[in-house]
Amino acid sequence: MELLHFTGQVWRPPYEASSQLLQVTAGCTHNKCKFCSLYHGTKFRLSPIAEVEEDLKVIQDYQPRARRVFLTGANPFALSYNRLLDLGLLIRKYLRHCESIGMFSRISDIKSKTVEELQNLRHLGFDSISIGTESGDDDTLAMMNKGYTANDIIEQCKKLEEANIRYNFVYLTGLAGRNKGEQNAVNTANAFNQLHPFTINFVSLTVFPESELYQEIQCGNFVEATEHERLLELRTFISNLCIETTLLGNTVSNTVPFVGMIPNDKVRILNELDSAIRNAGEDELRLYRDSIVSL
């Protein structure tokens, strides 16, 4: 059996489970976020076009009717407009039934592309881009070396909206640290309320030894939020959210999994969180967190 080229760690969002994976990059162009260990030890690598074409030929043989392709790597949207254009045309050449192309992106990856260029990419099928925003609070973003501000999030995602490209956000509870979740939640909700993310995906901070943040915790420079604080932060964020979107909180890192649409399911989700806050013990919740070996 012919094998596809994959280098280092390969991650995809849960909602991309049915998508055909195609490597165009490996690793992360930024690789400075304190909390992240997802691409530990993997240097950023750009897949040669010839290698991508080899993989597409294999996919054409085994999955010729693939309708969606997800480009792997931490942030393939960092590639230049022309490179993405070439990749989109190549995918269309080999997978004629492909309707859309997704990938991870950083906010900074959007900045270099004009609205017109984004519109052209949308015409080629680039859509439903997943963005690891993590927070919309400037203090938290700066502390974690995200490399952009809340205003950057708003400006760049409005460009995506103008180009009719759907996008998905990630919100990382606990990222602000002990006693700072309320501020993080309110400021992030205020930022997100100015936009129209297709989904908001919830992850709860789970620190692994490979991350810079792990070392800061050991030195006492960062104190983790308690599990109950995270649930209260999550509740505050959702209660302050005023837009129509889908909430996906069913990843392994969430002690209280949930899925729903707002505003329709807002009351139900808040009630579920309230129940957990009242009835779940801190030790029980922390024991679950400590049992997580991989995200």
Rank of each mutant, 00 (worst) to 15 (best):
N82R: 13
I59E: 05
K93P: 04
E134D: 13
F77Y: 12
F70N: 03
C98N: 15
Y148G: 01
A66T: 08
K113Y: 03
F70A: 07
D55K: 04
D109Y: 10
G147C: 10
T149M: 08
V115S: 04
I91W: 07
Q60K: 15
G132L: 07
L79S: 05
L38C: 12
I49P: 00
I91N: 09
L56I: 10
A66D: 08
R92I: 02
F44N: 11
L71E: 00
D55F: 07
S130G: 00
L46D: 13
I107M: 09
M103S: 06
I153G: 07
D139W: 01
T42P: 01
E117P: 00
M103G: 06
S128W: 04
Y39K: 04
T140G: 01
N75L: 08
S130A: 13
D138L: 02
L95W: 10
G136T: 01
T133Q: 04
R45H: 12
G88Q: 05
L121R: 05
A78W: 11
D139N: 07
I131A: 02
A74N: 10
P64E: 13
L121K: 03
K111T: 12
L118T: 03
I129H: 04
S80V: 08
G102L: 03
G41E: 07
I154A: 02
N75K: 04
G147H: 09
E116A: 13
E116M: 06
V52C: 10
Y39Q: 06
K146T: 09
T140F: 09
S130L: 07
M143L: 12
K113W: 00
T149Q: 03
S105H: 08
E99N: 12
R45P: 00
L46H: 12
N151Q: 14
Y39T: 12
S100C: 03
E53H: 04
G102M: 05
K32A: 15
Y62G: 02
P64A: 11
D55C: 05
T114P: 01
Q63I: 11
E54K: 14
I107N: 01
K43V: 10
I49G: 00
H97W: 14
A142K: 14
P76M: 10
H40M: 01
L121E: 08
R92P: 09
I154C: 02
L121S: 06
L38N: 11
G132A: 11
L89K: 15
T42A: 11
S128A: 11
M143W: 08
Q60G: 00
C98L: 09
L90M: 15
L85G: 00
F126D: 05
S80L: 04
L87H: 11
K32W: 02
G132H: 07
Y81G: 03
R68G: 00
L89A: 07
I129A: 03
H97E: 15
V58I: 15
Y62E: 09
H40W: 14
M143R: 14
R92G: 15
